[in-house]
């Protein structure tokens, strides 16, 4: 796959440095490699860091945020090394996945403390602006420990962007948010991106990335599996072969009929044992076109008078989508 790592919005001028730059970054714990030789340059815009659970997204984000030392390679934020350099937090906002906050503070106190620690000239104005950005003004004077998960998340986001950072990193920001809060957060991240900020968020849910981001970095098993425009990657994902396990009143006749279909790439009589809701017998079908196959199947069964008793997609897990991407690279 040849997808470049261009900036999300407009191409950067040659003189303009990437605000977030990873060069050949690896991280290992003993013999276990968590991140393997990842390089990327991100400029203004929203970028999704996509990958299955355990792929290394959080490890990568922690290294980007200067909270973890790379075993090899360097991470730079606005041209400065991220590790052992607290100065980068002038340019960086971080929202971790772990949602603990000092619950005895009110949101206003919490965000105000962030503004003070950033040594902002007008602490009160910055606090108010951040509260307004996340739509938390009404509840601002309540203790955070009384908040719902989504409100807590918004308070943390407000604290992370109180100093209007060039780079905002968010680890699974939509976890625990209801659809309305999710929309609001997406809108906020878009606004930051169009104001020239670099926003990177991680997610293991394809749809979140689809709605939010034009550019993605796909991480699978610690490696950068794909990067670039989301639509190209999505096309690759939908055009991959899909596997289904079927059971019917006449497997052999169904197999013959399916082989005549364009959208079917292969059929196998499994004669397998009963498992996962599939009765004994059954056939495995490899469909080259998901949409056409799923429309054709009921029509074929009806025409031949075959009764379908099970249709189970075999590899719909996100992991298999990702591993397909790795194979396609």
């Amino acid at each position: 796959m040849s997808i470049g790592t261009e900036p999300a919005t407009k191409p950067a001028a040659p003189a303009e440095a990437a605000t977030l730059e990873l060069s050949t970054v690896s991280k290992w714990y003993g013999n276990v490699v968590a991140i393997n030789d990842v390089s990327m340059r991100l400029g203004p815009g929203v970028t999704g860091l996509l990958g299955p659970n355990g792929a290394g997204k959080t490890t990568l984000l922690h290294m980007m945020a200067g909270m973890l030392a790379p075993s090899r390679g360097t991470v730079r934020i606005a041209g400065q090394p991220a590790w052992r350099n607290p100065d980068v937090y002038r340019y960086l906002g971080l929202v971790t996945e772990r949602e603990n906050v000092h619950g005895f503070l009110t949101a206003r106190e919490f965000i105000r403390a962030s503004a003070k620690l950033q040594r902002l000239p007008d602490v009160s104005a910055a606090t108010q602006r951040a509260l307004e950005m996340v739509d938390l003004v009404d509840a601002a004077d309540r203790r955070i420990e009384t908040y719902s998960k989504g409100m807590r998340q918004r308070a943390r986001v407000a604290a992370a962007l109180v100093h209007d950072p060039q780079v905002l990193l968010l680890d699974e920001p939509f976890n625990g948010m209801d659809p309305r809060q999710r929309m609001h957060m997406m809108d906020l991240l878009h606004r930051m991106a169009s104001a020239g900020r670099t926003v990177l968020f991680s997610s293991h849910i394809l749809e979140e990335v689809e709605q939010l981001s034009g550019t993605v970095q796909v991480i699978v098993a610690g490696r950068l599996a794909a990067s670039g425009d989301y639509r190209k990657i999505r096309r690759l994902m939908t055009s991959r072969p899909h596997e289904f396990v079927l059971a019917s009143s006449d497997d052999r006749a169904l197999a013959v009929a399916l082989m005549a279909e364009d959208s079917v790439a292969g059929v196998e009589l499994t004669g397998g044992h009963a498992s996962r809701g599939v009765p004994e017998g059954g056939i495995k079908v490899r469909a080259s076109d998901y949409g056409r196959f799923t429309r054709a199947l009921p029509r074929i069964a009806k025409e031949r008078g075959i009764r379908l008793s099970a249709v189970v997609p075999a590899d719909e897990s996100l992991e298999s989508v990702f591993s397909y991407l790795v194979g396609a690279k």
């Binding site: 100065d87 603990n100 962030s114 620690l117 950033q118 604290a159």
Partner: peptide, 15 residues
């Protein structure tokens, strides 16, 4: 232990 230290560490404050 509870992870709240991150809010203080992610600031440009000398350790």
């Amino acid at each position: 232990d509870d992870g709240t230290i991150v809010h203080i560490l992610a600031k440009p404050v000398a350790r």
